[in-house]
Design a protein around this nucleic acid. Structure first.
Lengths: 186, 186
DNA sequence: CGAGTGATTGACTTAGATCAATGACCGTGG
DNA sequence: CCACGGTCATTGATCTAAGTCAATCACTCG
């Protein structure tokens, strides 16, 4: 299995709705947006692909792409041709099994994020998000910027900053330079 | 592959965090909640399982459950023992392939829903949701109750009713007894 | 015929989005 | 080496859309 690297200029498409499926992609760098054209001709953003994510997994089992994949900024993708993958999977069922597991874990993760969004209160939502990713000592390391974390959990960064400040004032959390520590009894 | 049906009384668990994995489940009837116990001892709802959904897919590749599955009300589940499934998949790779595709489609769907939640305005979110599920004529059939639809897209039912009324007033949609028709040019 | 639930609308409140400004920090190019 | 542009983190002021509480009507089911 030898993915080829491919650079996509901002605004260009990796593939378009209706194109025969070519394979699976991995975003190495940049930002790709999956956009679906609806029957009424409107564009609906289906997903924002972030670096490190695979996308178009469903291409393995369908014959044409059902959305556009457009590079928002200059991006690099790794291309895994479907036929090579399928061949690889056939020769090596363990690989397929691994692929399947990754998907299963992805489903899990997505559901968790979705459930998180169900929580309306910024304070509670943040607490939940932190609880979900803290270690046994209650220490949470936020990877990336707080701004990105805010987006991840569906808040504006301002709302996040404010809520964090409030949580700290009310002693629910302590912020240190290497993470956020949850106060157990809240 | 012969799933066994099992009834779970309200409040009882299908499985508990840490239990060795037994298999995969399908909710036939009722309501099951996946709850994770965090390091700090808090309960975090990871997912609400609705009738017709599989759950604990990840159990196929991990050796113990990582959350509790608790019946919110009396529920019926179908149990697919992991070893039987794995055996089945080994004998019949097409089955595994199908299982994988289902997961891939699930990932797609979940991402779409997640992206939908990114839209803050009730009006716009509803429009997007409708666009995503309307047919070529712009006709959307809402399955289930409007109340359920509201929950699905993350709004209170009141907010949904109001926004729908507003959309109708502004001629963006027309509501008929067999669905909602989108006005193309909005 | 109630009890239960969905659909709908009204009144009110508030939490969070929006707009705006500031300081810290960082890389970089002259 | 420093000035400058860019981004993150933070906080303030303001506003409004959506949540909450509440009431009504229609409908179905036992």
């Amino acid at each position: 299995m030898s993915p080829t690297r491919q650079s996509i200029a901002a605004g260009n498409a990796v593939f378009r709705q209706g194109d025969p499926t070519f394979g699976l992609f991995y975003l190495a760098l940049g930002h790709v947006r999956l956009v679906r054209l609806t029957a009424s001709g409107d564009e609906v953003i289906t997903h924002n692909v972030r670096p490190g994510e695979f996308f178009a997994e469903a291409s393995l089992s369908s014959s044409s792409y059902h959305c556009d994949a457009v590079a928002v900024c200059d991006s690099d993708v790794l291309v895994y041709p479907a036929n090579e993958l399928i061949e690889e999977f056939r020769k090596n069922p363990a690989e397929l099994w691994q692929f399947t597991s990754r998907l299963a874990r992805q489903v899990q993760g997505l559901r968790t994020r979705l459930t998180l969004r169900q929580i309306r209160s910024a304070r509670e939502r943040i607490l939940q998000a932190l609880r979900l990713q803290c270690d046994t000592h209650g220490l949470c390391r936020i990877e990336g910027t707080l701004k990105h974390f805010a987006e991840e959990i569906g808040l504006t960064h301002e709302a996040l900053y404010r809520a964090l400040a409030e949580l700290e004032r009310s002693k629910a959390i302590v912020r240190t330079d290497n993470g956020i520590v949850l106060n157990q009894n809240v």
